[in-house]
Structures are given as structure tokens and as C-alpha cells.
Design a binder for these strands. Structure first.
Lengths: 200, 200
DNA sequence: GCGCTACTGTACCGATCAGTAAAGACTTTA
DNA sequence: TAAAGTCTTTACTGATCGGTACAGTAGCGC
């Protein structure tokens, strides 16, 4: 009875969802087995180091997805504004308007942070760096771009928390909309831009 | 061997710290026992419904602290600006510049959300409501005040996540500083205020 | 001193935990 | 067709999980 799943990578999407829903400690091997359709034997065949290795594999896949879909266009796209817009829209889709948790953010808050500290740090650092690069290409000052990109990434994480807490996806969407306004460079002065959205 | 802790409330501070550090699932009775200095017998004497009741007690205490120290001044203080400044400073102190996790936010992200949904929602709703009230007393439009207060609470939560992820308390402090600027009403127009802080 | 209540320590329960071991089933290669 | 390699199933281990039961002890009112 071989080659039913056949590919280790086939399990990673299920694993990601399980860890998102149950957290690291909450995702028991029984739960993982049910979600992936794999028995313990298979799981330990693909991931000899158990849950830790599973999470690392998931984190690597997440990192790769963001690298391709978000970071890379931000850093290297020929249109900074378009890349920023794409980032916000792709992010909103990815997190399902706040209904889906950010696994990396959740790990950062939990006590498992130390175990995955490097991956967690890398994920957020790459995000802030890439967004900063886009903002600089918009013509902004490097330092201001840094603060603004930190602020944007932070707002997305906070939006997930708050929209889940209030059980209201609209909260998440409003945060994304506001980031659209704050991060857009419309060719006028920054002050014009600021007064334009009314919210400061 | 009676009356060593004597008061149920004496344990709550320790319990809060344990749940913050280990999460709901990660905080085993063994860990809880060590942190509080209470054996299982005592714990189940004070909290007959086990961990769930412990968390509810902690959440009630947290809610009370925020009500007294933050929400109440925001709603009823005679100086809205001062109340907002106090809120930000007290919040920064409370979360130890991002080194300390927000238990309510952590529960909102974890799969335990449903179990404590009402308390979680109440905590954040009260926060947003109170801040909105203060912003309205500054003379702002109600709808704009709502959006701005949502944005502020969300930023605080995101700042905790990001500063922990990057292991950099300065990230948290910068977010608080920026909120100071965004939420302050300096007597000039909002646009003046906006252009003043250089960001956005 | 006596009994009542409040609290504590310990032993124990069944369930579940992460992880191991090994034999079986299928595919691939030769 | 047969050996080798890949994957799955099953049974198992020892530890730990949340929770219960209960005997005991300390302090208080009397």
C-alpha cells in the first residue's frame, strides 16, 4: 500500500492549516494524522524529527510563498505602487480577511517562539525590508520608509488579532483599505496624500 | 497546613503570567502548580472547574485593571488628551514594551478563542469604545473617531507581535510614539497635525 | 479543649501524549 | 522474477495530561 500520498510536499498544506488552527502544542499527532490522512508511521517517515520538523517545513513553504508572491515584486517590480497594491490584496486574500490566522505571528506570540526564532524573525524582517525597498523606490526617505513599512506589517498582524477578537472581518478589511491609502504615492505631496484620506 | 496562600486572588497574578508565557494548552497543571506554589488539591479547591475557570478569573482581573486604569479615564476623564496619553503610557508599561504578551490577544488567535469568545470580545470592544469616546470629546467626528480608535488598538496588538518576532522592544516603542502623535489633538487642524509627524 | 470549615498533599484514574519498532504491502529496478 | 527501496499499518512504550478522591492538618469560633 505505497504511494498514496507519495509526496512529502502534499502533506504540507494540510499541516499548515492544522498548526494555524490548533497551534504548535494543540496540534497533537492524532489531530495531524486525521488532517493529513497519514498515520504516525508515515508522518515520522517524512518528518523524522516529528512536529518540530513539520513546522519548519511549513514555515519554509510559507516563506517561499511570500517571497514569490509578495517580497520579490516589492523589491524588484518595475512599478512600486503596483507591487504595494498587489501585496495588500494578496495578503488580504491569503489571510482570508482575518478569518485565517498568521502562523508566524501566532508562533511569535506563543512560548514556542524561541524554538523557531530565526524563521520567525526572517519572515518579518524580509517583509519589512521588501516593503521599505518599494517605498524608497516611490521616492521616499529611507528612514521614513522604514518606519512606515514597520507600521504596515504591524497593522496587518494587529488587524488579524482584532478582527478575530471581534469576530468581524470588516475590521481587517478596513485596516487593509487604510494601508492602501497610507502606502500609496499618488504623485502629489505627502501632505496632500495625508489630508486626502481624512484619517491622518 | 492551611492558609499558606489563603486567598484565591493571591494566585491570579501568577496564573496570568503562566498563561501568558505558556498559552492555554501549554500551561499544564504541573507548570501551573510550580508557578503558583499550589498543589492540585488547592488549585481545584479555588478553581473547581480547572484551567478554564482559572483563565476566566485571570481575564476578569485583566478586564478590571484596564477598566480602572485605562477605559474609565478615557470615557469619563475631564481631559481627553491627558487620558489618551495616560492610556498609551500605561499600556506600554503594562506590556513591558512588547516583551510581555497580551493574553487576550493571544487567546483570540489560538484555537481557544471560541471558549472565551465573549470575554475576548468584551475586552477589545470596551477598549475601542472608550478610546472612541475620548476622541469624540476631542471634537472629532464620531465615525472618524471609531476608525481611529480601532486603528490604535490594532496597532498596539500588532506592535506586540512584531516586536516579539523581531526581538526588538524598540519596534513597540516606536509604535506607541507614533500613536501619541496620531491620537493627540493639538488644537490646530487635523491636517496640520498630520503633516507635523512626517509619517503617512 | 472541641468541632467546624478551609485548605493542602498524595495517590490514583483513564486518556492521551510523542515517539519507536517492526512487519507488511506496493513500486521500482534489474 | 527477484531483490531493493519506499511507504503504511499496527502495536507498543513510558511519560504526562486533566481531573478526582480523600485523608489529613491548620486555624477559628465556641
Amino acid at each position: 500500500m505505497a504511494r498514496m500520498v507519495a509526496e512529502r510536499s502534499d502533506a504540507i498544506a494540510s499541516l499548515a492549516e492544522v498548526f494555524r488552527e490548533h497551534g504548535y502544542e494543540g496540534a497533537s499527532l492524532a489531530v495531524i494524522g486525521k488532517a493529513t490522512g497519514l498515520g504516525k508511521g508515515s508522518l515520522y517517515h517524512f518528518f523524522p524529527n516529528g512536529k518540530e520538523e513539520m513546522v519548519r517545513a511549513v514555515l519554509a513553504e510559507i516563506e517561499q510563498w511570500f517571497e514569490d508572491s509578495v517580497y520579490s515584486p516589492l523589491r524588484d517590480g518595475d512599478n512600486a505602487n503596483a507591487a504595494i497594491t498587489t501585496m495588500l490584496d494578496e495578503t488580504a486574500k491569503y489571510f482570508r480577511s482575518g478569518r485565517r490566522v498568521c502562523l508566524v505571528g501566532a508562533l511569535a506570540v506563543a512560548n514556542t517562539r524561541d524554538l523557531f526564532a530565526q524563521a520567525i524573525r526572517g519572515y518579518f524582517l524580509a517583509w519589512v525590508d521588501a516593503l521599505q525597498a518599494a517605498l524608497v523606490r516611490q521616492g521616499r526617505d529611507a528612514k521614513q520608509a522604514r518606519l512606515l513599512s514597520e507600521d504596515a506589517v504591524l497593522a496587518i498582524q494587529g488587524a488579524i488579532v482584532l478582527s478575530r477578537a471581534l469576530d468581524d472581518p470588516a475590521v481587517f478589511q478596513r485596516a487593509i483599505d487604510q494601508l492602501h491609502a497610507r502606502l500609496a504615492f499618488n504623485g502629489k505631496t505627502l501632505n496632500d496624500n495625508a489630508s486626502g484620506n481624512g484619517l491622518l
